[in-house]
Lab assay of single mutants.
Amino acid sequence: MSIQHFRVALIPFFAAFCLPVFAHPETLVKVKDAEDQLGARVGYIELDLNSGKILESFRPEERFPMMSTFKVLLCGAVLSRVDAGQEQLGRRIHYSQNDLVEYSPVTEKHLTDGMTVRELCSAAITMSDNTAANLLLTTIGGPKELTAFLHNMGDHVTRLDRWEPELNEAIPNDERDTTMPAAMATTLRKLLTGELLTLASRQQLIDWMEADKVAGPLLRSALPAGWFIADKSGAGERGSRGIIAALGPDGKPSRIVVIYTTGSQATMDERNRQIAEIGASLIKHW
């Protein structure tokens, strides 16, 4: 067993022997301040990774656009098919120029040779490549099948209805392509620590998230040296922004954090800054 596999296998073990965790309302004060600064709703939840206990939450059962955070769930569904012998990570998928959609920095470079399922998941999570996500959605049967996968996990809230990039439209009061912070946090925890996926697939999923290259201005910008984070960000229309993450000190994750916002007129930089400040408060009061 590799060191990384050992780390993920012992996530519940280490967490069980940690000192009790206590909620700190100071972080919620910052979440509410972010709402004021952005002029928009902000949803927040913080779960203990081992027990699933909610440590703090704000608007945990209000719907927010998922945006690209759905790509972690998508690759979880792909990995479940791999575990069941219905898919192979090494299978190569070929596609054409007509398949390319807006923001496809990886797939646009491989029109000639195609990409493997493993490479597509890596591109979808680490670079948020939209064509990679659409190609992977095709392998599982489309958005409705991802929703069905989530329902089978016990998540009857999260739903995907459309493809990239239309799913980022974020129309107010439109339930399409949305989740709730509580539902997303619980589902992410199941994917990373539950028995739904094999140990190898859980490790692969967290490795992809740990290698995320496009979430630097968010929670990662607030992390002290030595902290662990595996995350996936999302951005959408109407001032929408979000991030889902597993993080913790001492090089291992111990909490799940989900943050979503929508309806702001603020710039992307300002949305990023507010999420980073929430992260800084979380870490300060850990």
Rank of each mutant, 00 (worst) to 15 (best):
T139Q: 13
L188S: 06
N152K: 13
L136T: 04
L28K: 09
Q97E: 15
A185Y: 00
S96G: 13
C75E: 01
Q86N: 11
I125Y: 00
F22L: 13
V31R: 01
D129Y: 00
T261G: 03
F58R: 09
A200N: 15
A40I: 04
L150R: 00
V157S: 12
L38K: 06
P181F: 00
I243A: 04
Q86Y: 13
T262N: 10
V29L: 12
L247V: 11
G216I: 06
T178Q: 03
L223D: 02
L79W: 01
Y260N: 01
N130F: 00
C18G: 10
W227D: 00
N173P: 07
E145I: 10
G43S: 06
P60V: 12
G251I: 07
L197D: 03
E195H: 14
I171F: 13
I275Q: 01
S201V: 04
A40W: 06
L120V: 05
D161W: 03
S254Q: 15
K30T: 15
R241Q: 04
I54H: 11
K144W: 09
A222E: 13
T138P: 06
P249L: 06
E61L: 12
V78R: 00
G39N: 14
M67S: 10
L218F: 04
M153R: 07
N173E: 14
I125P: 00
V21Q: 05
T107Y: 01
S281C: 12
R162S: 09
G85K: 10
F149P: 01
A170F: 11
T138D: 12
V31L: 11
A15W: 15
T187W: 04
P253K: 08
R92G: 06
T147W: 04
M180H: 14
N50T: 14
R7A: 10
T187Q: 05
N134R: 04
G154Q: 09
L74V: 08
K30W: 05
E169I: 10
L79S: 03
A230D: 00
A266D: 09
M184E: 01
H94N: 13
R81Q: 10
L150F: 09
A245D: 00
P25K: 10
N130I: 01
R92I: 14
E270R: 11
M115R: 05
L197T: 05
T131G: 15
S122W: 11
K32G: 09
Y95R: 01
P217G: 09
K252L: 10
E61A: 12
A133R: 00
F13T: 12
A148R: 15
G239K: 02
K109W: 09
V258Y: 01
R202C: 09
L89N: 05
Q88T: 13
V101D: 12
S254N: 13
M66V: 14
G248C: 02
L111F: 09
W163T: 10
L28M: 12
T186W: 15
L10V: 12
Q204C: 14
D207L: 12
K30A: 12
S233E: 01
T131I: 01
E277V: 11
Y44K: 00
S221N: 12
S240F: 03
L205E: 02
V257G: 01
G52I: 03
A245L: 03
G142S: 06
